[in-house]
Every structure is written in C-alpha cells, then in structure tokens.
Design a protein around this nucleic acid. Structure first.
Lengths: 228, 228
DNA sequence: ATCTTAAGCTAGCACTATTAGCTCTAGCTG
DNA sequence: CAGCTAGAGCTAATAGTGCTAGCTTAAGAT
C-alpha cells in the first residue's frame, strides 16, 4: 500500500512484493519488542519466549524471521551502533568544530548510553556469553572513532590542543574517560539519568583533564580559541 | 559449633563436629568450581548443573549447600570483594604513603581485575539479571573507598596534591579512571593482561592527569615531593 | 481459479533452576 | 558398642529456556 517514496511508474501499482513489506514490518516489531524486553529484564534477560509472548505468537514462529537469539542480539547491537553514531554526529555538527564538538559528541554519547542502557551494555560490555558481534554490526564504531579523531585534529588546528592530541592514543584516552563514567553510573546508579548522581557530573572536569593532557606548546601566540 | 583453629584443650580431641568441617570443605569446593566455570564460560555462563557435574554429583544436591544459584553468585561476589580489598591493601602498604600508595593500590586493583575477570565483572558490572549483591557482600567495597580516601589525605599532607583531593569527589574521579581502563580492556582486549594492549598502558598517564587535577596551591615552597 | 509458499502451528529434544520426597549411612550420643 | 539422627546423596517431577522437524492454512502470485 505505499511505495516508500518515488517509483510509482510501473503498470501494476504496488506489485513490489507486498509480502516482503509485511515481513519487514514483523521483523521491526520483533526488534522493538526485543529491545523493550532487554530494557526491562536486563541484557541477559532477553528471551525468545518472552518476545513471542508479546508478539502473540508461539516461540518457534520467531525462527521464521531470525535464525537464532544471537542473531537478534546482533541486529540490536548494530541498531544501537547506528543510532549512537547518529546522535553523536548530530551533536558534534551542532557545536563549534574542535574541542567543543568533541565534548558535545561525548556528552551526547553518554546521554544516549544512559537513556538506552541495555543496548549500551550490549555494545560496550559484551555481557552475553557466546555473543560476538559480526563485523558488519561493529562497523559504525570504527566510523565513530574517526569522527572523534577528526574533531581532535580540528582542535589541534584551532590551537585548542597540542599536536599529540591528533593521535590514536588520544582517542583511546578520551573513550576511556567516558566509558569509565558510564560504567560507574550504570553499575552503581542504575536509575539515574545523565547529569544526576555522583559520576556523570564529573564529566566536564574529565574533559578539562583531557585537554590538560595535551597542552598547546607555545600558549598565547597563535590564533585565539573559539575563533577559527 | 566449631572452634576454627587454636583451642584444642577439650578432653575429646576434634570432637568439634567433623561433619561441619566436611560440609565447609564441600562448600569451598563448590565455590572454587563455580569460580572456574565462570572464568571459562563467562559470568552468565555459570550453571548449577555444570558445577554439579564437575563435583560428581546430581544438580539437586547442590541445594544442600546453597539455597539458589544467586546465593552462589553472592558468595563469589563477597569473596571477590575481600580478595580484591586485600590485594589492594597490601600493594598500598608496600608503597610510600600518599600518591605512590594510591597509584600502587589502583594498579594492583587493575591487575587483579584482569587476572580475575569473571569475578571482577560480577563485582563491577552487574551483568547477571535478578542478582543484587547483599549488603554484607558489598561491605568490603566501602572499606576500599576509605582506604583510597586515606591515601589521598596522606598525599595532601605530604604536599603531593592540593587540599581538594581529600574529598569524596576525588575518590569518585580516581575510581572512574581505573574502571574506564578496565572496561575498555575487558570488552575490547579480552585475552590481554595488564600492561598489554591499548588501554592499560595509559594508566600512568591517567594518574598524572589525576594529580594535575588537584595541583598544590603554592608550588615550590613547602617540602619537595617524594621526601616526607 | 489454481497453486506456491510464507507464516503460523504442535510435538519434541536437550538444556536450565528448583522442589518434594525417598534412602542410606556417617558419625554423634546414650 | 549399639542405636538413632540428621545430613548428604538420590530420583522424579515442574516449569522454564533455545531450537528443530514437520504439518497446516490461507495469502497472494500466477
């Protein structure tokens, strides 16, 4: 009944397998339910049987759409990576390029992670035995690293950070800082949002620390910060 | 019912319930097996049935010693806390009080965590659905925080850190740093030990950053660092 | 109007945690 | 030393899980 957009020029309208569309809808529905179950019961609390129950179907029917529980985890992993990357990219685009963008991106990342704890845990902690994300599901995280790397290069170019900040090491360092905050927040304050509690409010201080780790060599000479 | 050691002055020797001793031995054996299974199969891979199998017993027999699987997790949690605290305390005692002790303690903590990954994950990530550690099992972690706090007070007294380092915030900050390193190492480099890979080697740099976050107000005047 | 096949189903297997209730014997107690 | 108790094992059974095999039905392509 609705051809996504464009392409309405074929003789018989909607001939493009309407079954395929229904199928895709069911797949999406399963994934949404799975995410909800994971949120409620914890990452390892996801069960095929519960998904089937909520979908109003017998458990074996799920296998018409996914080959295994692990396959569902994999798609949720991938979905999370894509969404997370998107949120981060947008936050970075809204901010001044350089250190501002990096900070905004990381904070958005943290906010997203706490708002989507279960998925974030699946992505960053690997708590499910026998689950190894496929290379395809993992791909967006590589793009994320290069986004961060680019922001650091900008920050160096703008004279906000020293030249060594444009390095793999710096990416690892900065990611370690947020992951630390998130780990603490999730394990010890499972009901609080970003900005509440003992850990996430330390994030600005951590970013200052990070900046301090890469001081500009000859301060005061080049262009002023924020200009660019 | 049983006097642990010493006190063998009662008329009948070893009258102190030898059954209780056997029982205690079995309990220890179960816990050791459980820890081994967790190490091999992952935190959530621990299964009562597998423990029974290795003990050479039918699964229901385990219930003579533990009321549930979660109870086993709880004791493993507590065991881990105690061992971890011990390792950290010893490392701190061996080092110069103050910043050195803090650094040594944290590194020992990291080393222990990577050498006992499964238990560490159980303790710091809470990946098991429906498992909430008992207050008793949690107790040692409070003592650990006060150990760190004391080291920071020493560091302030020795003029290695500014006065604000003697605060709860500083404890949270420093614990966030190691947890970050550990999270990254465990999730992304599951086979490497402390000191290898991309993350744990950044620990010294992080400690320098931490120190930089609490600078001594009037540098160069008081006593020199390392003296005390 | 026919015929294919996707999408549901039931039955069943191999696991898991857990409970109930039986048996036997180690070892405490008179 | 004899006898009794309770502890430590067992089997059987329940309810849950992931997953496979094979049947049925009707939606929708032809």
């Amino acid at each position: 009944m609705k051809q996504d957009e464009a392409t309405a020029q074929t003789p018989t309208p909607q001939r493009a397998d309407r079954r395929d569309r229904r199928r895709q809808e069911t797949i999406e529905e399963i994934l949404d339910i799975a995410a909800a179950v994971m949120t409620e019961e914890g990452v390892n609390g996801l069960s095929l049987a519960e998904v089937a129950r909520r979908l109003g179907v017998q458990p074996p029917s799920i296998y018409k759409y996914f080959p295994s529980l692990m396959a569902i985890y994999d798609v949720l992993f991938r979905r999370g990576q894509v969404e997370h990357l998107d949120v981060m990219r947008q936050a970075m685009a809204r901010a001044e390029p350089g250190l501002d963008a990096l900070t905004a991106g990381l904070e958005a990342s943290g906010r997203w992670a706490l708002a989507n704890r279960a998925t974030a845990q699946l992505m960053f902690w690997r708590p499910v035995p026998n689950f190894e994300p496929s290379a395809e599901a993992f791909a967006p995280s590589i793009e994320m690293a290069s986004l961060q790397r680019a922001a650091m290069a900008d920050a160096v170019a703008a004279g906000q950070l020293g030249p060594e900040a444009d390095s793999e090491d710096a990416v690892y360092l900065v990611s370690t800082l947020i992951v630390g905050v998130l780990s603490q927040a999730m394990a010890n304050e499972p009901d609080l949002e970003w900005g509440q509690g003992r850990f996430t409010p330390t994030f600005p201080k951590l970013m200052k620390l990070f900046a301090a780790a890469y001081p500009v060599p000859n301060a005061g000479s080049k262009q002023r910060s924020g200009t660019r």
